[in-house]
């Protein structure tokens, strides 16, 4: 919940968020602040957690949040990975519930294709500019 107010806006005293979260009464979920014993599995879990959005804090990943719900989501992710589920399957499961919004990794779909098409166009455009600016003239000398 207290994602830094660091950049620019800092200036901008934030009116939002930070104070309001009421404290819940239970301790954090077992795997909210505990790593999996298998380093490989923990690594997979961390990678996934870093790319899932915390729903109660909105602009942090669940890996960077002290919000109780983020803790419960970390618990879900870790226990499922420990049970052998693949990270992408867990992501899929969450996206079925919360939509694309929960994943910081956009997937190609009817709603997101420009995110992938534009870089391709930019790449072609950049190539074209470089070619026209320098490639074409490389044959003749400057006057």
């Amino acid at each position: 919940m207290k994602r830094l107010s660091i950049f620019v806006i800092v200036l901008a005293t934030l009116g939002y968020g930070q104070v309001a979260l009421a404290q819940d009464s239970l301790p954090p979920a077992p795997y909210a602040y505990r790593q999996l014993d298998d380093p490989q599995q923990e690594h997979e879990a961390e990678e996934l957690m870093e790319s899932l959005r915390c729903l109660t804090c909105q602009s942090q990943s669940i890996a960077d949040s002290d919000a109780p719900m983020a803790g419960d989501m970390r618990h879900q992710v870790r226990t499922r990975i420990a049970a052998g589920e693949s990270p992408e399957h867990i992501r899929q499961w969450l996206m079925e519930r919360y939509g694309d919004y929960i994943s910081y990794t956009p997937r190609m779909s009817n709603d997101t294709w420009p995110l992938f098409a534009v870089p391709v166009l930019l790449f072609l455009g950049a190539g074209l500019i470089v070619w026209r600016r320098i490639g074409r003239r490389s044959g003749k000398d400057s006057q």
Binding site: A29, T56, M69, D72, H75, Q76, L94, E96, R97, Y98
Partner: peptide, 14 residues
């Protein structure tokens, strides 16, 4: 729902 498991399963965010 001590681990918010059902909450997550039905897509509730708060």
């Amino acid at each position: 729902d001590n681990l918010s498991a059902v909450q997550l399963a039905i897509g509730s965010s708060g």
